[in-house]
Each structure stands twice: as C-alpha cells, then as structure tokens.
Amino acid sequence: MTDSDTRRPATLAAQSLESIDPASGGVVPAIQPSTTFVRDRDYEPLVDGRIYARDQAPTPEHAEGLLARLEGGKDAMLFASGMAAATAVVQALRPGDHIVAQDVMYWTLRAWMISFCADWGIGLDLVDGTKDGAFEAAIKPGQTKLVWVETPANPTWDIIDIAAVAKVTHAAGAKLVVDSTVVTPVLSQPLALGADIVFHSATKYLNGHSDVLAGALVTAEDDPFWARIKDNRLNIGGVLGTFEAWLLLRGMRTLYLRVERCCSNAMAIACHFDGHPAIDAVLYPGLESHPRHAVARHQMPGGFGGMLSLRVKGGREAALRCVANLRCFQRATSLGGVESLVEHRASVEGPDSPIPDDMLRLSVGIEDIDDLIADLESALA
C-alpha cells in the first residue's frame, strides 16, 4: 500500500490495509508473537530496526497503521487499555501546566485526573461543556497545555463543537484531545475538525466483541508532545500485547458494518421511545429535539452513534425495575460490542455521581431491532 492508495476507509478496514500474508498467502493478517528480534553479524537490527517488542512489534504496528489511516492521522499508538492511553497523555505534561476538561465525561478518567493533577501540581478546571464559551473562559493562555473533550459525552450524550473548541485551544497554544470512543472514525473525523490527538477506548467499538482491553491514540502531527507520550508508553510499559492487537485488528475489519447497524438500531429505539408514556426523556443526538442536534449533524456525518440514555418515569426504583426485567439487553458495564447492554450508571459511579438516578444507559448492539424494542417495552410495562 502507498500514500496514493485510493481505497475508501471501509475497504481499508475490511482488508486490514494489506492483510495477505506473504509467507503463506493467507487472507487473514499474520500474527508475530516474538518479543525480541535478531541482529545481523555487525550487530545491527536485522529487520526494520526492530530490537524488542515493547516499542516495536509487527502485529500492533499493523493495527496502528490501519487506525491512523482511518482517522487521517500521521501516527497511532496502541496501549494496554483506554486508561493507559489517556494517562500517558496527561503524564506528558509538566508540573505547573493546566488542563481544561468537561465535567461530564468518562467517570474513571475524570476521577483519576482530579487525583493525579492535585498530586503532581497540574491545574485542572472542569467545565460545563454544554455552555457556549465555557472552554474559552477556563483556558489560561500560557499555562493551559491541554484541553480534553469527549463528544458525545458519556452518559448524557452532550455534543461539544470540536471546531469551535479547537479554535480557542490553539489560540492559547494548547493541544486539543478528543475522546472519540463512541463516534469511531466511521462517524466523524476529529483531526479534520481541528483536534490534535484522537483518543479511543479501543475496548469498545474498535474491537467490538467485548473480548479485548485496549486503548489508542492518533495524532495529527508527529511533534515533540507526541514524542513525550511515546516515551511514556515505552518507559512505563503500557503496551498492547500481540494477541490482543491481532484481535483488535480482526475487530476493525467489521467496524463499518457493526457501527452502521448499531446506529440504525439506536435511532430506531430513540424515535420509538421519544414521547413514550413511561419515559421522561430520551437523550440521543440523532433526535431533532437534542439541543445540539445541528452540531452533531455537522461533525458526525456518518451517523449519531449506538449509545443513548433513557430517563425513566418513577425515578430510581422504576429504572432499576426496568433493568431487572430486561432479557435481550444484558446488565453489564462497557459499550460498543455486538450485544446490547444496559447500565444504571448512577449505581456504578456511586453516591458522588452527578448522573440522575432515573437514567439508564443503553449500548445498542446489532440484534434484530424488533426484539430490542419489544424487550424495552415489556420491561417498562
């Protein structure tokens, strides 16, 4: 494959860039599990400068190359988990630096940021990303080095205008990281909208089969900040194993088909239960009633995602009763797999959670939509 390759993203994903194994002719990408690589008689690396798998391993590099192409980035790195990827970015900052992030985002990362920044002398401001000008007001020129955006925001599915935030971020000389886990490169291209780095919990849609823990970063530029993140991965050791990278690569081969079906099913559920007598609100950016539907339509031209939340009439008790009665939706944490999941997020996050206790988060899978709707209807009855 060359830079002149004109194949479209769905084709690149299905074919894993170039999946034919030159040694055997197999159509499935080969897996190379070796952790170390030989040198020649002059003690130089024999192949592609490879010495050790922690920083150079063929199978992870194959998956990284595919993801970089799908996101339109210069380079990509895989990590042992989404948290390993996210923390590598924050740990590339220095004491005295400042971060701006939104107050509604992945709960575990938010909690870790608060603790880590306090311990390491990094400033952190959490803002209401739904308010116009919130990011600009919190940015401190000369001190803010990183702005972290998650859109749609888990689990309320608020939409952040990436291009608008990128403009004020770059004006202050900071980097913009966009958590695009829910969106995937199928639905949006944050780098094209001005983001500097795209983050994925690759455990979710990129893998898509609920059987791999992985994280990923894709950069617009191979610059000194990216080099510091790369050093963090190498020295701390949060790399993705070869077998996990191979499974991730396998998952990405069906990414476009899976995401298309998840989006279709989620939209059908959102439309069906919008205005339902047992539901107070449906939170889904694909609905025209969503306060930032127009922004979502612009920056997510591929679709509105497979995630939505329902606010159940009757509060916590009614929401948990609905969860207990579901049969097709599995009661489990995580998202982005082929199976549909339901989560009472307030219970997971605990007493300090800002999430309403009447809210159910749905990760909509690829099952028959009539079965999913009937399951929800029965559980709400």
Rank of each mutant, 00 (worst) to 15 (best):
M1L: 15
T2M: 14
R7T: 08
R8S: 04
P9Q: 08
P9C: 11
T11D: 09
T11I: 11
A14W: 01
Q15D: 07
S16Y: 11
L17M: 14
D21N: 05
D21I: 01
G26W: 07
A30F: 15
P33E: 02
T35E: 14
R39Y: 13
D42P: 00
D42T: 09
G49L: 12
Y52K: 15
P60L: 00
E61V: 13
E64K: 02
L66M: 11
R69W: 14
A86C: 13
R94V: 00
P95D: 09
G96P: 10
I99N: 07
M105W: 07
W112M: 04
F116Y: 01
A118N: 09
G121D: 07
G121C: 00
K131N: 08
A134D: 11
F135A: 01
E136K: 11
A137S: 11
I139K: 04
K140R: 05
K140V: 12
A153G: 10
A153C: 14
A153L: 08
D161S: 11
D161E: 12
A171L: 14
A172Q: 04
A192M: 08
D196A: 08
V198A: 05
V198E: 03
A202S: 12
T203E: 02
Y205L: 06
L206G: 12
G208F: 13
V212Q: 03
A214T: 04
L217I: 07
L217N: 09
T219S: 04
W226L: 04
R228E: 00
R228H: 02
I229M: 08
L234V: 09
G241S: 09
G251Q: 11
L257V: 08
V259P: 00
R261I: 13
S264R: 15
N265V: 05
I269D: 13
C271D: 09
D274Y: 07
G275F: 12
G275A: 13
P277S: 11
D280P: 00
G286L: 05
E288H: 02
R292I: 03
A296Y: 12
L310R: 05
V312A: 10
K313P: 10
G314M: 01
E317N: 13
A318G: 15
A319Q: 08
N325T: 10
L326A: 05
C328I: 06
L335D: 09
E339L: 03
S340R: 04
E343C: 14
H344K: 01
R345V: 13
S347I: 01
E349M: 05
D368P: 14
D370V: 01
I373C: 04
A374K: 15
D375H: 02
D375P: 12
